[in-house]
Design a protein around this nucleic acid. Structure first.
Length: 210
DNA sequence: TAGTTGATCGTCT
DNA sequence: GACGATCAACTAA
């Protein structure tokens, strides 16, 4: 249990008010924290993807603001949660200044604390990789859904802090997963070799492993 | 282990 | 009316 220790303050607004490409890389290794009545859920961010709004055909914001994507056009440091495939939620960290629709998709975390609660929310009896190694999986484990869309990451409910012991870990880069447009952009970043990264069989991962 | 497919519905065309 | 920033269950080998 590390929740007995005092956590650092949430990352400041200035951290988020930068390009999604910069924020995405720097988010690796940081801690995603969910503050529930029962206690804290904490996961180390090990995999992210950057979505660059108007410049990015794969982004929900490519064609301009709509009711669904309006969060992305707001101030950095808020959560953009969307519903997809009729059954899944995915969570993004909004970056850039107001009016810039950039965001970073949280794809995978390494569970560190509150694991009992995460297991219950996912319906698992014991710890395994499927708990949080995918964007919809980590949302389910952290209880992130429609209600969490727009949450301010500088509040006390959901926030991100610097890891206390942040060793420099090697970062891998690849194309993004599951997109049909903007395929060629290498805007996925992950902690190399970390077992909680979503796809072990990703081509880029294999190439770098060899 | 790799490859395929069904589930399921909100959002945009 | 089509499709999706996914997942889990299934098949084949």
């Amino acid at each position: 249990m590390i929740s007995d220790f005092a956590l650092p303050n949430p990352l400041p607004r200035s951290f988020y008010n930068r390009s999604a490409l910069v924020v995405a890389k720097e988010l690796l290794g940081k801690l995603l924290v969910r503050n529930l009545d029962k206690g804290l859920l904490i996961g180390k961010i090990v995999e992210v993807e950057a979505y660059l709004g108007a410049k990015d055909p794969a982004s929900h914001a490519y064609r301009g603001p709509t009711k669904r994507n309006e969060m992305m056009f707001g101030e950095g440091g808020h959560l953009y949660v969307y519903f997809t495939y009729g059954m899944h939620f995915c969570a993004n960290v909004v970056t850039g200044k107001t009016g810039v629709a950039e965001a970073v998709l949280l794809r995978a975390v390494e569970p560190l604390d509150g694991i009992e609660t995460m297991l219950r929310k996912r319906g698992f009896a014991s710890l395994n990789r499927n708990l949080t190694n995918g964007p919809a999986k980590l949302c389910q484990a952290f209880g992130i859904g429609r209600n969490e869309n727009g949450t301010d990451l500088l509040g006390s409910e959901i926030f991100i802090v610097d890891a206390v012991t942040s060793r420099k870990e090697p970062i891998g880069v690849s194309t993004r997963i599951g997109v049909s447009r903007g395929k060629e952009k290498r805007w996925r970043f992950f902690v190399k070799g970390n077992e909680w990264v979503s796809k072990r069989n990703n081509t880029e991962y294999r190439r770098q492993k060899r």
